[in-house]
Nucleic acid binder design. Sequence first.
RNA 1: GCCGGUGUGGCGGAAUUGGUAGACGCACCGCACUCAAAAUGCGGCGGAGUUAUCCGUGCCGGUUCGAGUCCGGCCACCGGCACCA
Length: 803
Amino acid sequence: MDSCYNFSKIEKKWREEWEKNPINPPDDSKPKYYCLDMFPYPSGSGLHVGHWRGYVLSDVISRMKVLEGYEVLHPMGWDAFGLPAENFAISHNTHPSISTAENIANVKRKLHEISAIYDWDKEVNTTDKDYYKWTQWIFARMFENGLAYEKEMPLNWCPSCKCVLANEEATNGVCERCGSVVTKKNLRQWMLKITAYAERLLNDLDTLDWPEKVKKMQSDWIGKSYGAEVSFKVADTDKEIVVYTTRPDTLYGATFMVLSPEHAMVKEITIDEQREAVEQYCFEASTKSSVDRMSDKEKTGVFTGSYAINPLNNEKVPIWVAYYVLADYGTGAIMCVPAHDDRDFEFAKKFNLPIVQVILEKDAEEKELTQAYTGDGVMINSPLFEGMTAFEAKQKAPLILEEKGIGKKTVNYKLRDWVFSRQRYWGEPIPLVHCEKCGTVVVPDDQLPVELPNVSSYLPTETGESPLAAIDEWVNTTCPKCGGPAKRETNTMPQWAGSSWYFLRYTDPHNKNELASKENIAKWAPVDMYVGGIEHAVLHLLYARFYTKFLYDIGVVPFEEPFKRLFNQGMINKDGAKMSKSKGNVVSPDDLVERYGCDSLRLYELFVGPPEVDSEWDDSGIDGVFRYLNKLWKLVYTYKDKDIAPTKDMEFIKNKMIYEITNRVNALTMNTVVSGFMEFTNKIIEIAKKEDGINKDTLEAIVVLLSPFAPHMAEELWRELGHTESVFKQKWPVCDESKLVCDTVKIAVSVNGKARENIEISVDAPKEEVLKIAKEALGKRLDGKEIVKEIYVPNRIVNIVVK
RNA sequence: GCCGGUGUGGCGGAAUUGGUAGACGCACCGCACUCAAAAUGCGGCGGAGUUAUCCGUGCCGGUUCGAGUCCGGCCACCGGCACCA
């Protein structure tokens, strides 16, 4: 054994050894544990220390589970289709299939350097045709089950990506990927009916061990609300307009109605005198981006000239058109109660529309409102709800309206169907064929995969048409049904398609006949621990849940939720900002590995801060953990042959260490695990120096505990302690709690809550005795004071209250 | 605007969940070793001070023998959603 810690030598040695003899060989007799990282897009710029944070964490968990006796699945793969990969290829003037393969090789080499125990024989790549065959297969099943449909409508269009976006990709009117302002484009696109699963996606959140924050984001995104649909007759016609409201209790206060500009009835009800103004308004609205619409400070709108009849009081209420009413939520039309809704109030004030109060705040006088009152209160001016509070009326109104035949109880969701097709080359072709005779026909399973043609020209177009449309020999095909001439669907799938089910493929990555065998899925899935960034809270994680529920419904998987537990690691910032090439603040792990070794880097990744919190990277911080490893090395080197019979202190410190480290690991507070190692090592050194020796048990315990964190050093030290078998064949140490019991304990004595003295007492000393010792220790501090109260919390603290 | 989260030394952060605030580490200072430096070891390190003392966990108040931790009211920053009726 070298007297110095030669990390590069031992890391190379053990990495090679573990490749030859894996530390977690298959073993059916053990319980399983599936620990998964969100698989990366194989970026051309490699990995920075921020990426490693999650990978180190999942590796630590996996190794820990190996020691706990599990058979662990910890795979890695590549989310390699999609825009980033295609854009990278375009900017490097190459073909995405080539650059993707190169980038994968590069990132894979880097991953080896943290010695993460990935099961490389289970590696998947979404761009392999043996993989995307099954991505297409799942789409085909969705199509057959009526979950995929084609629709022409105004869609989010990113002018920079030259591609439509799903709602989830265009929050705040901005492209999630590139930050461009999204415009609207009327296009025919393939949609997935994720809304059919809204209720299940919402309800099953309760069953998940996920951060509350992510669950909240998903439930807000799904956005369930309870209310009623109410029919209003259009005055002097036989037409009806249905509105959706969450406040049917306020129906008597509805003094006007607003339709969205896209509402089908706008044309029909507009009177001739208003036609020009209404058409002008609708045209202007159609040219506005959602960002512009949202940033409008003032309400805009135009009167149609028609009136609707309030079904409860038969008042005529004017019908307006305004784009603050969204076309695709509810019915695209609303009843307006200015007295009790902020937006309606603002609109009424601007256009001088009547305001009628129907709820009176408790104990308040009825007087003119200066703003909408949206709280609870007593119903007024509302014969049907006489004597109720607004809260009661809200509950009862839908049923009352139903009885009167003018409305019905309804729920609504903000979730929209998933815009699924993309107008770019680098994605899975959608396995459909358009035949003049048979219509849209799904490609039969035995003809899957529909391979992406290998062409040199694949640049996106400005028109919203896929570049695949230009490849005649690929587009023109025969109809699988009638054999006649047909054309292929030229849109591709979004990047989310391949990542929505990849966790299943890992269980059986080479299966030629199924996406994965039932046995393997049942054995490994669902994922026990899923580690990744929070940026996928409502994208990948929602889509994967939807796919899983669908696959459950068609009998492919026996569970409804893919990821039992989710852990979001925090980002690592540098100089207060997210690491990015453009900011020039990227810290590369390469030279750190070279200077300190991967064990030090691993420890520092964990030590930098609580794993779920964003942390600031400080290069000099790694010196601390490097010094620690050297210190531990020296401890073992110095005392490995000075095994002595354990003293009580040694037994105590060993078990206390096991107890603390185990608890902290289980709580995933890895930063305190690392500080715990430092703390206990310091104490062990102190004891070893004092006794000129240490029992080998203690050294062995610390080495085994450390092995998930600094595996190379632990393996080396373990062998130095005289073992021929890998440290990963050991069991995680168990604390002997009987050794934690002490005869005496040190406690603080305070006066009026302020700590003054320390005393040592025997653990079972009676209260009177402890108080006596405490008062002696305080001595003169109590002179001339009157003792009001004496408090003793056993083995914790003494507090003397004086006047 | 609504909903979450966070606020502790020069810095990253601990605190057994109401019981000695600042563990552990970084940076810094002193000493030892050295011709010297690095490395290492030992010691110091919240502020003030009249050194047997006071103040101190964003601010103000409360509960309690005792509050970083609980309650009420503010402030600041970060994140999510945002005209969803």
